Simulated assay, not measured.
Amino acid sequence: MANIVPDSRPISRPTSAWATGEIGQTEQLADRYVAATRTAMVAMTPAIARRCILTYTAPGATVLDPNPTAGIALTEAARTGRHAVGIQPRQPQWQSVCDANLDLAWLAGAPAPARTLTGIADPQVANLPAAVDLVLTGVLLDRDGGHYNRALLDLYDDLRGVIDWVWPGGYVIITCRAWHTSRGLLDLPGEVDDIARAVGLAPHDRCVALTSPIRLRPGSAATHIDVMIYIVCQGRAPCLSLRA
């Protein structure tokens, strides 16, 4: 089984580009994810999720994905000893994929449990181990960028619904990429930044995470996903029901 990102600590602070594409996507999925996960990897890969989690949290932290689609962020959180919390995917077809990936993590001996909530009003919220340390989510569009505005509105609602669950100074990371469609290039990272600022998040870092190997041949280029990192302002207090 390929080791997507080494688990050894510590990982240094992020640079402008992360070498998260040296292991192919097929290898990243092998024995760890069901095949249907591949579609979701245009917004977040297991290597990128693991890099975010190992860089911005410690073992035992709580990682939340408010719209997990295939459950990549939750699966990597569980596999690295974090408490994984998700809200049911907005697209029902992803629920079985997410559940299957979390089951694989559990069968492989993932040391931390994963929980899926029905929504922000789910009574299980009161039983979570602590306030959230990291919100990690990816923005996924369909092949031609359809439902673009709907996806942005959903992201706004997702962030607004869970921002008060995060410790002051905690992180919110959103992964996405510019989207090439028959109508031209959609600047999804720029739109995401506008939404994050609108809900009160403070910009912290913006990196690119490579999804293919770095090549040294002239004219070659590695594809990437944007990793947009924000901090929850210190003036906020987490929801009391989430305290340990």
Score class of each variant (00 low, 15 high):
Ser12Cys: 11
Ser12Gln: 14
Arg13Thr: 11
Pro14Glu: 12
Ser16Phe: 06
Ala17Leu: 12
Ala17Cys: 05
Ala17Asp: 11
Ala19Cys: 13
Thr20Ile: 13
Glu22Ile: 07
Gly24His: 02
Gly24Leu: 08
Thr26Cys: 01
Glu27Ile: 00
Glu27Pro: 00
Gln28Cys: 02
Leu29Gly: 00
Leu29Ser: 08
Arg32Ala: 10
Arg32Cys: 00
Val34Asn: 07
Val34Ala: 05
Val34Thr: 08
Ala35Lys: 08
Ala35Asn: 02
Ala35Asp: 04
Ala35Gln: 02
Thr39Met: 08
Thr39Asn: 02
Thr39Gln: 12
Thr39Asp: 12
Ala40Tyr: 11
Ala40Phe: 04
Met41Tyr: 01
Met41Asn: 01
Met41Cys: 10
Val42Thr: 14
Val42Tyr: 04
Val42Phe: 03
Ala43His: 04
Met44Tyr: 00
Thr45Asn: 06
Pro46Tyr: 05
Pro46Thr: 06
Pro46Phe: 02
Ala47Ser: 15
Ala47Arg: 12
Ile48Ala: 07
Arg51Trp: 10
Arg51Ala: 15
Cys52His: 07
Leu54Asn: 07
Thr55Gln: 08
Tyr56Leu: 15
Thr57Asp: 06
Ala58Arg: 09
Pro59Leu: 03
Ala61Asp: 07
Ala61Pro: 05
Thr62Gln: 10
Leu64Tyr: 02
Leu64Val: 09
Leu64Ile: 08
Asn67Leu: 11
Asn67Val: 15
Asn67Lys: 05
Pro68His: 10
Pro68Met: 12
Pro68Ala: 12
Pro68Phe: 12
Thr69Gly: 11
Ala70Ile: 09
Ala70Gln: 05
Ile72Lys: 13
Ile72Val: 15
Ala73Glu: 09
Leu74Lys: 06
Leu74His: 01
Thr75Trp: 05
Thr75Met: 03
Glu76Gly: 10
Ala77Thr: 04
Ala77Lys: 05
Ala77Phe: 05
Ala78Val: 07
Arg79Phe: 06
His83Gln: 10
His83Pro: 00
Ala84Cys: 00
Ala84Asn: 07
Ala84Trp: 01
Val85Asp: 03
Val85Cys: 08
Val85Lys: 05
Ile87Met: 11
Ile87His: 07
Pro89Val: 12
Pro89Ile: 11
Pro89Trp: 11
Arg90Ile: 12
Arg90Cys: 07
Arg90Ser: 14
Gln91Val: 13
Gln91Asp: 15
Pro92Phe: 03
Gln93Asn: 10
Trp94Arg: 13
Ser96Leu: 09
Ser96Thr: 13
Cys98Pro: 02
Cys98Leu: 14
Cys98Trp: 01
Cys98Lys: 10
Asp99Gly: 01
Asp99Ala: 15
Asn101Gly: 10
Ala105Gly: 10
Ala105Leu: 06
Ala105Arg: 10
Trp106Glu: 15
Trp106Lys: 13
Trp106Asn: 11
Leu107Phe: 02
Ala108Trp: 02
Ala108Cys: 06
Gly109Asn: 04
Pro111Leu: 02
